[in-house]
Amino acid sequence: MLSFIAQRVVKGVIVLLAIVVLNFFLIRLAPGDPAIVMAGEAGASDQVFVKQLREKFGLDKPLPEQLLIYVKGVATLDLGFSFRQQAPVAKLIMERLPATLLLTLTAFAISLALGILFGTLAARFAGTWLDTSVTVFALIFYATPIFWVALMGILLFSVTVDWLPSFGYETVGGNYRGFAHVLDVAAHLIMPAMTLGLFFMATYTRMTRASMLEVKRLDFVKTARAKGLSDGVIQRRHVLRNALLPVVTLAGVHSGTLIGGAVITETVFAWPGIGRLMYDALLQRDYNLLLGVFVICSAMVLIFNLITDLVYRLVDPRIEFAA
């Protein structure tokens, strides 16, 4: 297993390097650079000023040289400096990463737990009103854009009934400590996590349902039934376990999408995470910061995928750690 992990890590590093190089050029294909953005904001511009900015950002150097400098930096775990925000990129990302991880992991947990639960229920009672309700419910959340769910959530739970805060990570100026702080953050987390989670929950519900219905028809389930096992044991230990493989695969793929989805959720709920940082960096052509966020996100996706591979083994012991 260790050699399997080691090989995956090496492959991951190569993929990461390829992502860095690709993104480095992709970002530069977009029109405009940080100097143009900053000159625009200064309310005046002259060529000397723009030239000075480009020199300051190192944008006057040839592209291959810029790439070499950047890759060298990444290899030594130095993500560079954001001239736009006048701070090291790693510091800016680390300030925001915990909030994003809290949001995405909560949303992930909600979506997976509820998705599997509803999917199992729908499959168990296939063709009944419960199945129809769950399917329709899942379809609605799958088809509704995240920002719309978010805005409707704010209107209902913040403006109309005033149960939940509409924005932010904590009550500004609240100065809560200890458990009160945990509760405060949790109250702020409910709406964004549910908004982000509901979309993915819908996918897992449908996937679990379909997969379970398929497994149910297989011979070994009939054998289990013939053996006289109880329905609950058959569903849990035989059907669900075998039906989970595609769900686990999907969850691994979704790890990246979740971070992408977090951009919208973080924007609407003013959640101080990495998604918003990435969006601002893109608009401002803050190259170093944008690349830094990409590196971290890519690394996270690679880690999630590694975890997925390990979970496969747990779900289905027949799968070997073949490199």
Binding site: L155, V172, V268, F269
Partner: peptide, 22 residues
Amino acid sequence: DEIYWQIIPDAAARSVAFETGK
């Protein structure tokens, strides 16, 4: 005594923040 400048990226959410007294 103090000023809090609150960062709310979405325009609709800023309107709601004013409406709800935040």
